[in-house]
Every structure is written in structure tokens, then in C-alpha cells.
Design a protein around this nucleic acid. Structure first.
Length: 482
DNA sequence: AAAAAAC
């Protein structure tokens, strides 16, 4: 190989059917991960590849694999005319679907066949395709094991394995299935791991699955794209929905991902945002696969503006031109923050990532700060509808609690009165079923009340417009962790 | 604290 780095696909001298496919897609220049990974994979080496979200990892492994499969005919004397030679594993069904489509388009001028199998869909059509024979199989782990055990998929000829979102595939929830799948594969093979995030522990674990790997790290692993503008607003849990409305309006944003930590919370939020007049759909793992694919499709087509979702949508989904990502809840894992906000600002586009931070999220925000090695400034959210009121009363403090935390009684462990039993059948969840209504001016909390709240936890009642996470954490942590 | 992945 020459010492000058390659930067265009034409320099790779890919087989004609592949360079034609690349040209069809309008690609000319390679991204850094592609420029570095493709030549290494072409040499047949194992790879652990880390690159920021949205920088073309799929092409970085698909193209050289296809190239090698074209150049090196399967020499085995297997009775199967089309044994599975390459296996690509992914942690979610939607992602498997997406990667399968990409592989298909790169392979469209070749004779290589590909198929995708994932759960939630009828086994039969997948079985038929597998029986016809495919060289490239894209799959999620559970359904693949079903097919292996039903002898629909025979993997003893596999030459290449790709674990996309590798750190997720190696985490505790997936590892048992993954190990079982790998036990069906030949020991002698090429293994490729790709992700935007690799923790040191995962790197160590990963290396036990690789033979003499080449580590490729484009930018720092765990880095967020520099084109994404990130904000963290300290918002009372009850104010998150109107904060969402306000940011969308003030930034003139139309489409956005809205991430929520639980499936139930996801369904509820989607429902109330819909009632509040936003075109919304929900994507989470309690929906049928049919509904999941439909939700994603309608978001892609722009039929809905908001995709309210759980972390099922955090990784890999490549939807063009989504301008914003909201973390309605701060994610439990800092890695997921990197992946979530990676849904915007893809392929060099600009993007906005807004996270709503409640008081009990201080630790999570500190974790994110550490992972992305970036100082996070917590910002106060000023609501437009409150500004006249604030002026009129001649105060800057609008009476909201100094940190957007849970009820202070929770923190202080004060017993609360039991909720009144409902006499009549009430809506299942009054809070989420009601559209947000601005409180009447007379109901505005007094300054005294706010000062009392604030002194209770030792934070100045005068909210500074920007506060550091560290300060917040220091103030809140003892009470929360106690 | 949850989600994801098989029926």
C-alpha cells in the first residue's frame, strides 16, 4: 500500500460492479473511517473500528467484504451452492432492516445474494429465502438462533462476521445469544467490530473475539459530532412538555427525535403531544413489528414531525435531515447519549441536541460530561409566557424551584399524605391525559415559597442563568444518594 | 432506575 492516505472511492480500485454501485449512490469521497478501514479489511485483517455516529460505517465494512467475496470464490466443496459467507449482526430490528437495504444496494450489480432475518415477522418468508441460499446474511441475534436451530441457516462456511454497534452486542443482555451464535461459526474467520462508543472494559472483552486486530480510531471514541449543538436545560419534570414546545417553536424546528427512558413513558408522552397538536408517532419495543416499521416510515416520509421513542431508536438509524434530538429523559447510560444525539448532524449536517435535566439526573449528566470529555453548562429554561408576569412582579425569579427536581418531599424523605381515593372513574393518568395549561397568574408561587424550597437544599434562591453541573451535583447529591 | 433481542 502507498503511504499517502486514500480519499476517494476510485482509488480503491474496487471491482466494477461495486464501483458502479458506489457511483450510483453518488459517493465519491470517502469518510475518514472508510478511508482507514476499507484497505485494512481488504487485507483480510480483523478490525475494531471506532468512529463518530453518522460517518458511514456501514459502507466501511460492506464494500471491502463484498470485494473480497467477489475476488475469493468460496473454495469449499459444500453441497450448498450459496453458503452464508458473511454474517452481519445488529442489536435492533430496524437497524438490521436498514443495514440489509444498504448491503443490497452495494451488491446490486453483483451475483451475491443477501437476506435479512429479524424477529416480529413471519418465519416462513425468511426461511424460504435462506433455503434458496444467500451469501450475506444480516440478522438480529434471537431470530437468527431460531433459524440456526431450525436448520434454516447453516453457518459453518462463514468467512466474515461483523458486529455492528459492537459494544451493545457485547453487553450483558446480548452476550449469551452472541456467544451461542459464534459457536456455530468456523474459528478461522475475519471478525469486524464497529461502534461509535467503546468503553475500556468492552475493548478488553472485544479483543478476546479478535485475532491480531487492527484498531482504527477516527477521532476519539465516544466523541459526539462537532456539528451538533448541545444544550442541557434544567427543567422541572412537570415543565418538560412545554419546554419541548417552546424549543421547537423558538428554534423553528419541525422534525425531531424525542427520547424517553421507558416504553410506558414513551407511549404516554406521544399521546399527550398528539393531543397538544403536534404530529407525533411512537416507536418502542412493546409495539408490533408492523407498527414499529410503520412509525419509522411515516417519520422518514415527513408525515409526522416527532418520533417519540425509547433507546430502540438510539443507535444507527440513518434518517436524513433530522434537525433535532430531544432527550426528554436523560439516558441511563452515557454511551446512549452519544448514540441518541448521533441521530442528528449526520454526514456533516448541523444538528441540535437538547436534554431536559431534572434534579435527580445530576449523576447521569456528570457521567455524560465525563464520557464526552466536554464541560456541560446547565441552562435555565425561561418560558416565554412567564416573562410578562415576571416583569409585572418586578422579580427575576419566577418562583419555580431552583433545580428542576422531583418533589422536595421525596428528597427529604418526608411522609406525604396518601392520595385521595377516586370516587368516579377518572382518566387512567390525569397528568398525561391533560394538555398542558399555563397556571393562572394568581396561582404563581410566591417568592417566599420559592426561597423556602431553595434554602431547604442550600441553593441560593437567585437562580443564575447558567450553573455548572458540578455545583448542582454537590448541592443535590448528598440528599439524593443518602 | 430501562431497553433491546425469540416464540
Amino acid at each position: 500500500m502507498s503511504d499517502t492516505p486514500l480519499d476517494s472511492f476510485s482509488q480503491l480500485q474496487l471491482a466494477e460492479p461495486l464501483s458502479r454501485a458506489v457511483a450510483d449512490m453518488g459517493y465519491t469521497a470517502m469518510t475518514p473511517i472508510q478511508a482507514q478501514a476499507i484497505p485494512v479489511v481488504l487485507q483480510g485483517r480483523d478490525v475494531m473500528g471506532a468512529a463518530q455516529t453518522g460517518t458511514g460505517k456501514t459502507a466501511a465494512f460492506s464494500l471491502p467484504l463484498l470485494q473480497r467475496m467477489l475476488k475469493h470464490e468460496n473454495a469449499s466443496t459444500s453441497p450448498a451452492r450459496h453458503p452464508v459467507r458473511a454474517l452481519v449482526l445488529l442489536p435492533t430490528r430496524e437497524l438490521a432492516d436498514q443495514v440489509a437495504q444498504a448491503v443490497k444496494s452495494y451488491a446490486k450489480h453483483t451475483n451475491l445474494r443477501s437476506a435479512v432475518v429479524f424477529g416480529g415477522m413471519d418465519m416462513k418468508p425468511q426461511t424460504l429465502e435462506l433455503k434458496k441460499g444467500v451469501e450475506i446474511l444480516v440478522a438480529t441475534p434471537g431470530r437468527l438462533l431460531d433459524h440456526i436451530e431450525a436448520k434454516n441457516a447453516v453457518l459453518n462456511q462463514v468467512e466474515y462476521v461483523v458486529l455492528d454497534e459492537a459494544d451493545r452486542m457485547l453487553d450483558i443482555g446480548f452476550l449469551p445469544d452472541l456467544q451461542r451464535i459464534l459457536s456455530y461459526l468456523p474459528k478461522q474467520r475475519t471478525t469486524l467490530l464497529f461502534s461509535a462508543t467503546f468503553s475500556p472494559e468492552i475493548k478488553r472483552l472485544a479483543s478476546s473475539y479478535l485475532q491480531d486486530p487492527v484498531t482504527i480510531e477516527v477521532a476519539r471514541s465516544n466523541a459526539t459530532a462537532s456539528t451538533v449543538e448541545q444544550h442541557f436545560y434544567s427543567v422541572n419534570a412537570d415543565d418538560k412538555r412545554r419546554a419541548l414546545h417552546q424549543v421547537l417553536k423558538s428554534r423553528g424546528m419541525k422534525q425531531a427525535f424525542v427520547f424517553v427512558n421507558s416504553k410506558l413513558g414513551c407511549a404516554r408522552l406521544a399521546r399527550s403531544l398528539e393531543k397538544e397538536g403536534l404530529k407525533t408517532t411512537a416507536l418502542h419495543g412493546d409495539k408490533s413489528q408492523d407498527e414499529r416499521l410503520k412509525a419509522l416510515e411515516s417519520f422518514k416520509k415527513g408525515e409526522v414531525d416527532l418520533l417519540v421513542c425509547t433507546d430502540v431508536a438510539a443507535r444507527g438509524l440513518d434518517i436524513k435531515d433530522v434537525p433535532a434530538v430531544f432527550n426528554f429523559d436523560v439516558p441511563f447510560n452515557a454511551e446512549d447519549y452519544v448514540h441518541r444525539i448521533g441521530r442528528t448532524g449526520r454526514a456533516g449536517a448541523s444538528g441540535l441536541a437538547v436534554s431536559f435535566v431534572a434534579g435527580s439526573d445530576a449523576r447521569l449528566v456528570a457521567d455524560i460530561e465525563k464520557l464526552i470529555k466536554t464541560k456541560i453548562e446547565l441552562e435555565a429554561m425561561e418560558f416565554e409566557e412567564d416573562i410578562p408576569k415576571i416583569r409585572e412582579q418586578g422579580r427575576i425569579n419566577d418562583g419555580r424551584r431552583a433545580w428542576g427536581g422531583d418533589d422536595p418531599r421525596d428528597v427529604l424523605d418526608t411522609p406525604r399524605p396518601a392520595p385521595r381515593p377516586q370516587r368516579h372513574s377518572a382518566p387512567r393518568d390525569p397528568f398525561f391525559d391533560q394538555p398542558y395549561q399555563a397556571p393562572a397568574a394568581t396561582e404563581a408561587p410566591t417568592w417566599e415559597a420559592s426561597a423556602k424550597h431553595a434554602t431547604v437544599r442550600g441553593i441560593s434562591a437567585n437562580i443564575k442563568p447558567k450553573r455548572k453541573v458540578a455545583a448542582l451535583f454537590k448541592a443535590v447529591a448528598p440528599a439524593v444518594t443518602a
